[in-house]
Design a protein around this nucleic acid. Structure first.
Lengths: 213, 213
DNA sequence: CGCCGCATCAGGGTAAACCCTGATTGCTAT
DNA sequence: ATAGCAATCAGGGTTTACCCTGATGCGGCG
């Protein structure tokens, strides 16, 4: 399972029903050497985007088929975790608050300053790159953790709890020798040489898995 | 150092230059059994608040001496980490975004629905209670960690790195016997019985100290 | 000056962890 | 069937870790 479509360039995805705005972004970003793709509605974008897409998103708030806020929710549900910047002509306070509370990086009103948008987008790209770095680190750990057998996981739990092999053996009703075998397999699979490292790696795999908000 | 002024009731602090609004909040909250204190300007509140104050804050955006956003910054700088709700009559989108990006729980416009504000404030109080619980847990760990001598900390680092006593001894140019002594003192002070627990406790003290956003 | 905490070390013993060899059982996939 | 993996166990040995007693030197504090 080598992660489906990796190795794509970080790209800015602009979703806006207004063609002049799309063209503006296309021009603004491409002349600054930033890969850009534009979409005229939320559906088009949802069909094209992939969960591991590197980059960031610029959303219009008001679109024909789906509002930017709804699109934001759909992306979150799908696990598409890219920085989002809202750009809107007629946004109100409550929408802005909702967007930012839901994790949007910023919410800017038209007309906007080109340099501001540009630096904002660069920040988004940098943030996304940083985040992908952390995720991939954890993915390696998660992968190694997944290679453990059920029995090895039971042993791991108890090692993490600080139980000595003798107690673990009693717990699982097996001999100390077997516990030793499991233990060495765990250390081997997780690529660690000491209990200290083992705990740190396993902890990373537990907390870093889901709770990465 | 038994934490200066703990044991105060969670209170809602309302800062608004408009007296009728202050009285409205005083009535709304006290009739719902929620302790409330009101302030007419940011300075008054800054002089009264303490770093470990449990509760939450309701801020007017526009005030004579200092804007709500500035007050928010001042509180953050002082380390006063309480949930903040902005309430304003004439807020714009950029202010709302700034407030939420700076960590505000919400940003509501007048006139507001009493029940909405009430549930929002209850959420803030609950969130603050939860946060204080986590902080106090970590404080215990931080306290025990602080009781380690410099030498013990040097040993701890290397134990965390998974080095055996023999290597630690070579590292610090001391005998293995001395390392054993330090090690047992560490285990005693941190109140743990195994390396596994030791690593988890020490890790909590390292990550939980500052990075609790 | 004496007491105390910190750091240092030694002897000597038990328990735990680690490592290698070797073996059996049962299930699964080729 | 035969090969492979997971799980089980044993013998036997080395290395670490842990614990107790005891001791020394140093610096600060009353």
């Amino acid at each position: 399972m080598p992660t489906p479509g990796m190795n794509r360039r970080p790209t800015v995805f602009v979703v806006d029903d207004d063609e002049s705005t799309r063209e503006l972004f296309r021009w603004l970003l491409s002349t600054n050497g930033i890969p850009v793709e534009v979409f005229r509605c939320a559906q088009d974008f949802l069909l094209a985007v992939r969960v591991d897409q590197p980059g960031c998103v610029v959303l219009d708030l008001r679109m024909p088929d789906m509002s930017g806020l709804e699109l934001q929710k759909h992306l979150a549900q799908r696990g598409v975790d890219v920085p989002i910047v809202f750009v809107t002509g007629e946004g109100n306070v409550s929408q802005a608050v909702a967007a930012v509370k839901a994790g949007a990086v910023d919410f800017v009103e038209k007309p906007f300053d080109y340099n501001r948008i540009l630096s904002l987008i660069r920040e988004c790209l940098a943030r996304n790159a940083e985040q992908r770095r952390r995720v991939s680190e954890r993915q390696g750990v998660a992968c190694r953790l997944a290679s453990l057998t059920p029995r090895e996981r039971e042993v791991l739990e108890r090692v993490m709890a600080g139980k000595p092999n003798r107690v673990i053996a009693e717990d699982l009703v097996i001999s100390v020798k077997t516990v030793e075998v499991h233990r060495s397999h765990i250390m081997e699979k997780l690529e660690v040489k000491s209990v200290a490292e083992l705990v740190q790696v396993a902890l990373l795999g537990h907390f870093g898995a889901e709770g990465s908000a």
